[in-house]
Simulated scan of single mutants.
Amino acid sequence: MAKRKRLAPAQPRSADDTPLETKSITGLSPHPAPPIASVAGDASATAALEELSETLRRARAEGRMITPIPLSQIDETYLVRDRVVVDGEDMEALKTSIQARGQQTPIEVVELGKDRYGLISGWRRLQALRANGADAAKAIITAPREAPDAYIAMIEENEIRVGLSYFERARIVVKSVEASVFDSHKSALQSLFSTASRAKRSKVKSFIPLVQALGDHLRFPAELGERFGLQLSKALLSDPYAPRRMSSALRVADPQSAQAEQDALNEALKQCLETEEKPMSPKVSKAKVRSVSPIDGVQVSTTGSAITLQGKRVDPMLYSDLLQWLKTWA
């Protein structure tokens, strides 16, 4: 019996005799998209890109973006640093932590120009990264600040993370005034330590004469305790010979440790106290004494080449301001 031939169903064909399903396989759509759809898609992508760029720009300007910056581009001397010394054990612990876990907290910098950044806060982290041989630091780039705000930011971080000694606090007050960041020790104290109690600011103020008289002679100033530092400041204010006596004692002792330095200062302090307890009988001067009261609460007397200030407003702050004025006057 002859085999029957099975017929396939008829397929619709186009004018060029090509099956329609073949055309669909080749990707040719019988209804191409209108040109306006392509234009709208491009506009949407451009708008999204512009929005993303603006978001990134705003985040960087507001200090919310962490950016890697080469260490060679960071100027750590942009501000006078408030910390005098760094504890060796704390620094080793920080270096070990960064080696093990990487830099967890970014430093804060301000842009100074092309590829130059000034360090605001994070000095210890920057030193640890340099010691570990790192090439870059994670940083937050903040908007340029007024000098007082930059100093306040630096101090606030150190007050929160690792407390400063009273000497270091008083030193940054003196240095900020010398750098013309603030016009007086009083305004520097109130601005830099605005969150501190009045009693704490008073103690910082009491250390100012110590910084001014012995700041360049002390090797271990951060080791001075609060009570001993206040005793030294009191002696420096009450005895006009105390600054020279203490600086000479330090020079002769040449201390190689904090304890040796404090022993030398203690001996000089005893001599100051003995002078106070047994003052020398003043010689009767034949020079005419002249007294004036330039402002309420301050009386100025002159006898020959001696000038004496007394009154209820003659306090450590007046003494510090007078010394500062004499330096500029000379």
Rank of each mutant, 00 (worst) to 15 (best):
V211I: 04
Q190T: 07
S194F: 05
F193D: 07
S165F: 09
R169F: 04
L236A: 08
F182I: 05
G163E: 04
L224E: 06
F167N: 03
S194G: 06
Q231M: 10
V162P: 00
R169P: 10
K203Y: 10
K186W: 02
A242P: 08
F220W: 10
V173P: 04
Y241C: 14
S206D: 13
L232Y: 00
I208R: 08
L237P: 03
K186M: 07
L218F: 11
Y166I: 02
S233M: 05
Y241M: 09
R219P: 07
A196M: 06
G163S: 15
S180G: 01
I208P: 02
P240C: 12
D239G: 08
R201Y: 08
L218Y: 06
Q231K: 06
T195L: 10
K175D: 09
R201F: 04
S233A: 15
D239N: 13
V177E: 08
V173R: 08
E178G: 07
R169Q: 13
H217L: 12
R201E: 03
F207S: 03
E168P: 02
L210Q: 01
S233W: 03
K200W: 12
F182T: 03
S184Q: 05
Q231T: 05
S194M: 06
S191M: 05
K200R: 11
A179G: 04
A199N: 12
H217E: 15
S176H: 07
L214M: 15
L189Y: 08
Y166E: 08
S233V: 04
A213G: 05
S197G: 15
V211Q: 06
V162S: 14
A188Y: 06
S180W: 13
L189T: 12
S233P: 07
A188G: 10
K200C: 01
K186D: 11
A235V: 09
V173Y: 08
S180N: 14
R227W: 08
S238M: 14
A170I: 07
K205C: 08
F167H: 04
T195R: 15
S187K: 12
Y241V: 12
K200D: 15
R201T: 01
A188F: 03
D183T: 00
F167E: 09
S233Q: 01
S233G: 09
E226T: 07
S176F: 07
V211N: 05
V162W: 06
F182K: 12
G163H: 07
A188T: 01
S238H: 12
F207V: 11
L230M: 14
Q231C: 01
A188V: 10
A213S: 14
E178T: 02
S180M: 04
K234P: 00
R219C: 10
D183F: 00
E223D: 13
L164D: 04
I172R: 02
S187Q: 02
S165P: 11
